[in-house]
Amino acid sequence: MARLIDRLRAAGFDLDGTLIDTAPDLGAAANATLAELGLTLLPEARFPRLVGGGIAILVERALTESLGHPPEPALRGKALERFRENYAARLFERSRVYPGVIEGLGRLREAGLALCCITNKHSRFALPLLEAAGLASLFDFTLCADEPARRKPEPAMLLDACARFGIAPARMLYVGDSRTDVLAARAAGCPVAAVDYGYDAELGNGEPQPDAFITSLAVIAELGADPAADAARIRAPQR
Rank of each mutant, 00 (worst) to 15 (best):
L8V: 01
E85N: 03
R150H: 13
Y199I: 08
L26V: 10
L37A: 05
P210L: 15
A32K: 09
R171Q: 10
E60L: 12
R239W: 13
M157K: 00
E72L: 12
E131N: 02
L91T: 15
P155R: 04
P148T: 12
A11C: 10
I167A: 05
A232Q: 05
S95P: 11
L58W: 01
T22N: 03
T33H: 00
D140F: 08
P208V: 12
I167R: 03
T142K: 00
A201L: 13
R7P: 01
D200T: 03
Y174F: 12
G104R: 13
F141S: 09
L203P: 05
I220Y: 10
D140N: 09
G53V: 13
V175Y: 00
I20G: 02
S137W: 09
L203T: 11
F141D: 06
A114N: 10
E93K: 14
G52S: 07
D21M: 00
I57V: 15
L108H: 09
I234Y: 08
I5N: 07
A35Y: 09
A30L: 03
A168S: 12
S66K: 04
A232P: 02
E103N: 02
A132I: 07
T142D: 00
A30K: 04
G134E: 06
E85C: 11
A225E: 15
A188N: 02
G100A: 04
A194Q: 14
L115S: 10
E154P: 04
I5K: 05
S123H: 11
I118C: 03
L80F: 04
M172C: 13
E60A: 10
A88L: 14
V59M: 02
E36D: 07
F139H: 12
R164T: 14
Y197P: 08
L37E: 05
A212E: 07
I57H: 05
D14T: 02
S66T: 04
A79Q: 01
D177L: 01
I20W: 01
H122M: 15
Y98E: 10
G176Q: 07
A187M: 04
C116V: 06
A201Q: 07
L159F: 00
D196P: 10
R233W: 03
V192F: 00
Y199H: 11
Y87I: 15
R9E: 12
F83E: 03
R164L: 08
L42D: 03
A62S: 10
L138Y: 03
G68V: 01
A156M: 03
T180A: 06
V51M: 14
P191D: 06
G52W: 09
E72H: 15
D230C: 10
G206Y: 05
L26F: 10
R7V: 01
Y174A: 02
D6F: 11
E93A: 12
G52C: 04
G204F: 04
L217C: 10
